[in-house]
């Protein structure tokens, strides 16, 4: 058997890696960043949403919000466990950081991350009440669906499998948000929801990263990316825009 194939050419040909023992150093670094981005975003998202539970207008809404907090934390745990196989201290990781910390609502940070964690920039903005939280969850929920479809194809099989398992759970969160938005619209909250949509739209859009990312080709060569940031963002804009239109709101 021809056994002399480098890991790099194996990955370039679409091969997948299955355990930490033969992951090249630079691949490891990019994979860890990708996993940390997901874990930090889920933990920060769940922490922010936890504070909103009691603002739910009814018990059904509070159950939905609590379920989202539980499941996002659980999803973070699934990926954190893979980071643990690479040496991350999972116990400490989950608690070393104030995940509820937020910037000002008007802070303008674009796509930059905070100094101390890898959460997507959008999770640094505070939620402004129940309706705002539901709208954020709707728009970001659709973005997560697009991003998870992309990352379900990463070349590290254990992570791809977790993302495939997590995707329908996250999709359900976006559905719950859509149901919540419709309920709020029926209660005459259209104006507040439109204001929230206007606020969150550009911030969620920024979570797709720079359209001129120099790193993309390098990540593509090792199977950690397939579709460009710009293409993913366009996909989200079409899907999320269609939902807003369907429920009688406009893209901000």
């Amino acid at each position: 058997m021809a056994e002399d194939m480098s890991i790099e050419s194996y990955l370039a040909a679409g091969g997948v890696l299955t355990n930490p023992t033969n992951v090249p150093p630079r691949y490891r670094a990019e994979l860890m960043k990708l996993m940390a981005t997901f874990v930090d975003s889920e933990l920060a998202g769940a922490a922010g949403f936890a504070d909103i539970i009691n603002q739910g207008p009814g018990i059904k809404e509070r159950i939905a919000a609590a379920k989202i907090v539980l499941e996002k934390t659980d999803n973070a745990d699934k990926v954190l466990r893979i980071m643990g196989e690479f040496g991350a201290n999972t116990e400490r990781y989950a608690t070393h950081h104030p995940w509820t910390a937020r910037l000002d609502r008007d802070a303008d940070i674009g796509q930059s991350r905070s100094e101390h964690d890898m959460r997507l920039a959008v999770f640094n903005y505070p939620l402004n009440g129940w309706a705002d939280a539901v709208m954020m969850n709707l728009l970001m929920g659709r973005a997560v669906a697009v991003q998870l479809a992309e990352f379900s194809m990463v070349s590290y099989q254990p992570l791809a499998e977790v993302f495939r398992a997590v995707a329908p759970i996250e999709a359900r969160h976006a559905e719950l948000a859509e149901e919540g938005v419709i309920k709020l619209l029926e209660a005459g909250e259209a104006e507040a929801l439109q204001a929230s949509a206007n606020y969150w739209w550009p911030r969620v859009a920024a979570s797709f990263g720079s359209s001129a990312s120099e790193k993309f080709e390098g990540l593509q060569a090792i199977g950690l990316r397939k579709t460009s940031n710009a293409e993913l963002k366009t996909r989200w804009e079409a899907e999320a825009g269609a939902i807003l239109k369907k429920i009688g709101l406009t893209v901000g």
């Binding site: 860890m32 930090d40 690479f86 890898m118």
Partner: peptide
């Protein structure tokens, strides 16, 4: 350079 937690916890920056 790769990093994530900057707290000596995650090992991304090894």
């Amino acid at each position: 350079a790769p990093y994530a937690c900057k707290a000596g916890v995650c090992s991304t920056c090894r």
